[in-house]
Every structure is written in C-alpha cells, then in structure tokens.
C-alpha cells in the first residue's frame, strides 16, 4: 500500500512539475492577498494580535484557493476511474494527502517569511512554540482540506462550495492556531501552551482517522 501511495504522490508531483499550475496560482494568490492586506493597513500601526489573526486569514484563503486541485483535476481529466482500478482508496488518499501536506508546508513557509519581512509587529519571540504549532496546524489543515476536496470533486467541483464546506470543519483548528500564534508572538512558554497544543494534536488525529474511514464511501461510486 505504501509503495502505491508513493506512486500516486509521484504521479501528482510530476504532473505538477509539468504544468506548475498549483505552484504558480498559489504563489500569485499569496502575493495578491498579502498586498491587499498591506493596502488596507496603509500607514497604520497594527498590533501583534491583529497580525496573528491576519496571518491565518491569508493561510485559510490560500489553502481554499489551491488545495482542491488534487482531486478536482482527476475528475476534470476523467482519470479517477483509472486511478480506482490501479490503487486502493486508502493508497490514493495517502498519496494525495502527502502531496497536499508538502504543498501546504511550502505555501505557509512562504507566507510566514513574507509576514516576517513585511509586518513590523510580526516578531516571533518563542521560535520552538511557533514551529510546533506551525507543523501541527499545517498537517491538520492539509488533512481536512484533502477530505473536503474529495467531496467537492464528486459534487461537480463547485468552486464556491469548497470554502463553505471547509470553514466549519477547520474552525476549531483555526481558532486554536490563532491562539498559538499569538502565544508565540507574546513569548509564552511551551509549558503554558500545552493544552492548546494538545487540542491541535487531537484534532489532527481525529481528522486523520475519520478521513481514512470515510474516504472509501466518497471514492467508490
């Protein structure tokens, strides 16, 4: 199963390198979103709390603009039936999830670097806390958006439906991650943020389990 999953990931990776659709559109989306926020902020001094929130606004909308591609492109090209023949549902899901996790990591690293460069008040005081919450948050974001993307692709890939369906599912993760980002900007120690980190971990685990259990029903018509 693992080799099949890697094969699916490899296929997605190579077709992405060939077209560079997701990378280009995500990069442009990040730039556009951040520049809109910069224009809206203007010459105002914004507080730490606000930058922490705005950071997750950009992450959420960038994810919503790009992560549905993995499954939607299969439906568009009509290759999903072939994929069903070749690999088991859990292998397909693992491959797609791996691809989305890597995409989310690249995207969010770029966003974090841009934020650190462009916003004066985005100064991280506790790097290890930021790192942990960033990694756990990204994994959760990737898992939830991958399973919702699978639902969307079977529902006829309605573009506006994706953020509508994902937002309530992602809300616990986003609320906790905003809190954790604020903690790392404040310089709160990891000891004090243990409860929030535990919430994100449990969210990741629960979502991963539920996704693997339910993906079969979505994937097989």
């Amino acid at each position: 199963m693992i080799s099949k999953a890697f094969a699916v990931f490899n296929k997605d990776f190579h077709s992405e390198l060939r077209t560079r659709y997701a990378i280009n559109s995500l990069a442009m989306f990040v730039i556009v979103a951040i520049s809109v926020i910069m224009f809206a902020v203007g010459q105002e001094k914004i507080s730490e709390g606000l930058t922490g929130g705005l950071f997750w606004v950009v992450i959420f909308f960038t994810a919503m603009s790009g992560l549905a591609r993995t499954f939607v492109s299969e439906e568009e090209r009509g290759t999903s039936l072939t994929l069903q023949l070749v690999a088991s549902p859990s292998a397909v899901f693992s491959g797609k999830l791996l691809f989305n996790i890597i995409l989310v990591f690249c995207m969010n690293t770029v966003i974090a670097l841009l934020y650190a460069a462009l916003f004066e008040s985005f100064v991280i005081k506790n790097y290890s806390l930021f790192f942990f919450s960033f990694v756990l948050g990204n994994i959760g974001l990737a898992i939830s958006s991958t399973i919702i993307a699978a639902i969307i692709s079977k529902a006829g890939a309605k573009g506006t439906l994706y953020p509508v369906l994902s937002f309530p599912i992602l809300l616990p993760l986003i609320l906790t991650s905003v809190q954790l980002t604020l903690f790392s900007l404040d310089g709160t120690s990891i000891e004090d943020a243990k409860f929030e980190l535990a919430i994100v971990v449990s969210y990741d685990v629960i979502m991963l389990t539920v996704s693997y259990m339910l993906f079969d029903f979505i994937w097989k018509d």
Partner: peptide, 20 residues
C-alpha cells in the same frame, strides 16, 4: 451521490462538535 456525500460530510462535521 447526494445521500452518500452529505452523509459523509455530516459525519466529518460531527467529530468537530466535541471541540466546540
């Protein structure tokens, strides 16, 4: 398809309820 997908979605949504 509608029944299957909405069932799956409501089960995914249900596991987030304990968080709230």
């Amino acid at each position: 398809k509608r029944a299957t997908l909405s069932s799956v979605y409501s089960m995914i949504a249900f596991v987030t309820v304990p968080f709230f």
